[in-house]
Simulated assay, not measured.
Amino acid sequence: MYFKSILLVSTLTFCYVNGAVLLWSNNKFADISPLRGFSDENLEDLVKKMGYPEVTVYKSSFSLLPELEVHLNGYYTAYNPNGDISTENATEISGQDLSLLETKQRFDLAGEGSVLSVLVLPNGRSKREVTSGSSTTETSPTTAKGPVLYKGKSKKDIYTLLYSSQPLLLRTSSNSSNLELGQSTMVTVNTASKDPITKLFVKVRVGEDNNDLMVLQFFFVWSKTYWSLKAVNLSSLTANYSANLNIVNQFSVPAHFSYHCNGVTVFADTTKTTELLIYDMQVQIDSKNGAFDDAYDCVDFMTVPIWSGLFVTALLGVGLIIALTAISEIKTMDKFDNPKTKPLVITVAE
């Protein structure tokens, strides 16, 4: 197989080049010569020729290639050992993240859009320096009960943020179970150039021993200059479980604003048997500095108590106006009050 041959080439040449690039897509793309360099400009030209597909850039070590082979069946692939792709905004993956990658690709293949994935493989020396310590994308299992922030960055340095004051709660009425979803171990953002949908992928550890892995896929939809959070798909990587949940209370927020809502935001399926609860949620998909911008609150500006107060004030104001108008219409006899005029004489007959 071609893919197996490139694995051998990679092991022989990675010490002499700056890096290598592996590409795969669900649509056929132009041949990439392994004898020429492949830079960011070449990647931009390829994206343009493919009609601007949804592009995701990863980075990893050469040791991941044998494990990755089984996940590329059915894809069009290409390999270039002389790659020079910027990895500043790439998502670093390890062998433990292949399950998340497999889940994400399963969602992509089910859709109709074109997808292009790029894996950058730096040279062996620099990669050993990076992996000698702890991974930057993997966090140790945690059972913290505090706030949760999911933060991902797209290729264009645009951040997608989702905050909850408590760990998310997955509640299933069919088996009367409650599952807390805390801090993430990996977050990726996918935004296609001509696709109004932005996808936020979050992998979290769940369960008492943190052995179960759950993938949350949040769907954000753009409508002109407004965006909204429509749904979330849940998929367990260690158990045969998945669910598609829609947000109960719809909202729409202008660009460059965040959305905030005190209390509980609920995502539920059509039968209301599975619910995902987010506490005091604040979310934004177009943050430029990695922090929330001014927030649109879910509580309307004119609430019921405000309307009640305005109604009572209006009634009192109308009554005051009527009283002042009635007083102004009273006419007195000025003759009795003017001392310069002849006084009025009234004779009384006995």
Rank of each mutant, 00 (worst) to 15 (best):
I247E: 15
M50L: 12
T11C: 14
N175Y: 03
S39P: 00
V9Q: 13
A90D: 04
T137F: 03
A90S: 08
M302R: 07
S184T: 08
K331V: 12
D300I: 10
E138M: 10
T332C: 00
G263C: 07
V304H: 08
G207F: 00
A231I: 03
L72Q: 00
G263H: 04
Y79P: 04
E54S: 09
D40N: 10
L22V: 15
G83L: 05
S193V: 09
R125G: 11
S287F: 02
I247F: 15
K331N: 12
A239R: 12
C298R: 00
R128Y: 00
N249M: 09
A326D: 08
T198Y: 06
A192I: 06
G152I: 13
K335Q: 10
K48E: 15
V57G: 07
L23R: 00
E112T: 11
R128T: 06
V21Y: 05
P81R: 02
L149E: 15
L229G: 11
L68T: 04
D108G: 13
K48M: 13
L100M: 00
S63W: 04
E208A: 09
D334C: 06
T77Y: 02
T188M: 12
K335A: 11
R128E: 08
Y2I: 13
L237K: 01
I32E: 09
S117R: 06
H256K: 04
T270Y: 14
D84L: 07
N80K: 02
V189R: 00
L320H: 13
V21P: 02
I93D: 08
V283I: 13
L229P: 06
S154G: 02
C261E: 11
F3Y: 13
E208K: 01
N27F: 11
T103F: 06
N211D: 14
L46C: 01
S235G: 02
T325I: 10
L162M: 07
S134I: 14
D31V: 08
D334A: 11
V348R: 06
Y58A: 09
S117T: 11
D280C: 05
I322Q: 07
F336S: 09
D269G: 04
A268L: 00
P147T: 07
E129V: 15
N262H: 12
F219T: 15
A349G: 04
F107E: 09
L169T: 09
L170Q: 03
G133V: 03
E329T: 15
T274E: 14
K127I: 11
G95Q: 12
I85H: 01
H260F: 09
S287L: 02
S132E: 15
T332E: 03
W227V: 05
S176E: 09
Y75N: 02
W222A: 10
P66Q: 12
G19S: 06
A78G: 06
F251H: 15
V266F: 05
S134P: 13
Y279M: 02
T11W: 13
T136F: 01
N338D: 12
N89E: 14
E67F: 03
F38S: 08
S99L: 06
S287R: 01
